[in-house]
Amino acid sequence: MRELEQSFIQFDEVSFWYNHDEPWALKELSLTIKKNEFVAVIGHNGSGKSTIAKLMNGLLFPQKGEIFVDGLRLSEETVWDIRKKVGMVFQNPDNQFVGTTVEDDVAFGLENHGIPRKEMIERIEQSLKAVGMLDYRKHEPHRLSGGQKQRVAIAGVLAVAPDLIILDEATAMLDPKGRTEIMKTVQRIRKEKKVSILMITHDLHEVTFADRVIVMNRGQKLIEGTPKEVFQQHETLWEIGLDIPFVAKIAAELKQRGIPLNKQPLNNKELLEELWRLHSNM
């Protein structure tokens, strides 16, 4: 029970299948997400990542095991409260844009939760400001870029003031510029609003921003740890068909050749510093 209090999300041996005759999409999965924590989930296609996300806000219900969100057990009765606490951003920027304009879209979630209009106006303004889209409030979706649409989607989720935001491959359909936009927005929001982030991604560069990484394989948790810890197990990752970021790969190669790196570098800058340190030690 003590664990329940500090963790925001808790999965207790959760199993889920879509069809009886198919294998488990998730098998006895246990995991927790703490308040204000940034967790990344990686894994090959069909490993169950989206299923985890959909279970977290009650789009699906597990056949076995229990899910707790902020101390509430997920059930038909609690699902509406849970959806207020857990917001979700999906992959396709177009197919989650409901309103005819930016502000109408942000309003959609608030309308659903019966927020009074006066408060709605304030919240829309605040959340659009938080994602840097306030100037576009009257724009129609077809006049926005993919990255901008995703930022509006984040604003729509933020407006409801959730404690956890799930991004299910929210950057997958964006160009590099759009991706950076979203990553920056997410990090800023996390600092300012004290929300937890669950980021499902194929982009291992994005994973480096997380506090903790969960690697999924065939509906089960394969590895869990900080990005550094996870990237050190590059052979295991390789086996399930996941590549590690270029920098981590170089570090691994260097180590293999007996070049002692003190810490596992995660980005170009850290690698450079590490190399300079080595250089000056020689």
Binding site: L59, M88, V98, E103, E111, R117, G156
Partner: peptide, 18 residues
């Protein structure tokens, strides 16, 4: 799916922005 995730449950108890 996205509408459901954002708490849409029909017209009842819904407020209006416009």
């Amino acid at each position: 799916m996205a509408m459901e995730a954002r708490g849409y449950k029909g017209g009842e108890g819904r407020t209006k922005f416009r």
